[in-house]
Design a protein around this nucleic acid. Structure first.
Lengths: 331, 331
DNA sequence: TTATGTTGTGCATACGCATGCACGATAAAA
DNA sequence: TTTTATCGTGCATGCGTATGCACAACATAA
């Protein structure tokens, strides 16, 4: 069906053997110049296209990387887009696989040898996936989150420092009654950003009112609904809100807008990630910049090393973050 | 490397032949219940995982679909995310391939039989890709745009009607001096949306001032920069702006915000696509809703039919669109 | 002239699962 | 008891490319 024409057909047309065709078309230097020319001509004439399936089986490699992403989290598109380009430069293709931090469904495609490596960006702290992949010797890198047992390479942001930086922004702006819309504690990003945030407040001697803290997923609706709750009049509302990521912050921001809560006048908001939209004038979100490009770059580098055969314990690359002051933090 | 353990090993452990293992594990009914049990046990004991590579070669199929997307256009993430889920339900995986409407680079992966089908969402009207894929009998569907020669199935929106609807929104709001930030004319979306828009204005007897028309790509910066240009004071500015998609509209909206141009007071804006963010209170973009879910659904349906062997001329499914009035159109 | 390289090709086989066909065994029908 | 199904398995081969090894042809050195 696919490649009706095989290398055997080309071989016959060119009057050589199949192996010679294979070598010639892949540019092996051992084939005579004239022979190559003849083979190339024959291949062109026959409209020959090598079978990827056969090549994959024969070479034991597929030049394909799987990325496990959380499709609920808008962040994935940012990561995937750039990753695609990075991999394309290395002649790899990208296959998408959905994964939620909670559901531990292991896509069989990850173990069947249909891919050369995996990039995990949705793992929970106690995820079992990493261990499985490792046992099966599937080259794997953790992208944005890490797990408890540090057996795998990981490329992450300095979430703790970022959480602290975020708190500092609000403190510097004079806020004392600060709320927090946090991400899941079973993710390193959720946990560390929270830890950094709390630490900074504690260092400043500010007590965090737990009534102003909301746990939720890393998405728009968490921010949206939390603001509804915090401003329902049942308790005294915060003057500032730390959000564990920009999506949450956008949700908060928009709900505040709907409720007529002035930002940052009545409510300051800081996010985390520095998504593209954060810089839009209409939103102008103060946030913490996460260097996704750098993170992706080292993730890919480490993955390639693993594919090339590097062994040994996991390496953890932590990328620095920095605050970006725009309009929503007050001051 | 990958699956050190093969079906031969399982066969030996279970005391049967390799072919029986293959049949048993795939649930062929012809294998005795007890034998199956023995094989399953052996497979589990040996930690056997079938080789996807070998299966692909042998079956002549890969259960993998490639989607060609334009990574510059934010729309792709919306499409890809949902497509992934639709395909997952059918046990297919999604592989991403970058493509620009202009550059006609044909990724060799599309022809090598490494995928079972292709969804093209970035084609230009005169693209040669469709013809190539068709000649090679690669099941293919055009997603959001179509091409001149209607040989392939396509699932698109009623862009012409949408363009008209958009113009009507602005006319109804009383605008007469209307500008337009259009997408590329070598795409069906760009051309048809423009055509519908112009047609509607013409029907209403309104003349479009070509000085207020800007052509560009379907992205944020087109909108952003065009507003800079239109309000540089060199010519009389428009009171309303038709944008060929939401990304352009967001660019326009944000630039207007920066320049202190009130929307919709000084400038009305309508977009096209109805991206998620359009509904955010902070943006509240009036736009034309495109039913991406429906479009994806029929695209996938048609693709599966082609993979199943349907032949014949291309079918074109046109999905209706409708205006969504929010806050930016004036009124 | 014999020994010693080079260079260019072909042969044979590996890769690991899927599957058409044949066959032995047990059961049902004659 | 012989015939005809039915069921369960194994054998052999296909899928199409990659590659180790052998070898012939021709060149260079001794």
């Amino acid at each position: 069906m696919t490649g009706r024409v095989t290398s055997f057909d080309v071989a016959e047309a060119a009057g050589v053997s199949q192996s010679t065709v294979s070598r010639a078309l892949r540019g092996e230097p051992s084939i005579g110049t004239e022979t190559v020319a003849r083979i190339v001509a024959a291949a062109a004439a026959l409209d020959y296209v090598p079978s990827d399936r056969a090549r994959d089986l024969s070479r034991g490699t597929t030049k394909r990387i799987a990325m496990v992403v959380d499709l609920e989290n808008p962040l994935w598109s940012l990561l995937v887009g750039r990753l695609h380009d990075l991999l394309a430069d290395l002649s790899y293709h990208l296959t998408l696989i959905a994964g939620h931090p909670d559901s531990e469904v292991l896509d069989p495609a990850l173990l069947g040898g249909g891919i050369d490596g995996v990039i995990l960006s949705t793992v929970a702290l106690d995820s079992t996936l990493p261990a499985i992949l490792q046992r099966r010797s599937v080259p794997t890198v953790l992208l944005q989150r890490y797990t408890e047992g540090g057996e795998l390479d990981s490329s992450v942001a300095d979430d703790r420092a970022g959480g602290a930086a975020s708190a500092q922004i609000l403190l510097d702006a004079g806020h004392r009654r600060i709320g927090a819309l946090l991400g899941p504690r079973n993710t390193s990003t959720g946990r560390d950003r929270e830890a950094g945030f709390r630490e900074c407040l504690a260092d400043a001697g500010i007590e965090l009112d737990e009534a102003l803290v909301r746990m939720g997923s890393f998405d728009f609706s968490h921010g949206y609904e939390s603001v509804s709750g915090l401003f329902s009049g049942e308790t005294e509302s915060p003057t500032a809100l730390f959000c564990s990521n920009d999506s949450i912050a956008f949700g908060a921001l928009n709900r505040a807008c709907e409720l007529g809560i002035a930002v940052p006048g009545d409510l300051a908001i800081v996010g985390f990630d520095d998504l593209e939209q954060a810089s839009w004038a209409t939103l102008s979100l103060s946030t913490v910049h996460v260097p996704f490009d750098d993170m992706l770059h080292s993730a890919v580098t480490m993955l390639m090393e693993r594919i090339a055969g590097r062994t040994g314990l996991g390496r953890r690359v932590i990328h620095p973050v920095y605050p970006v002051l725009r309009s929503t933090h007050g001051d």
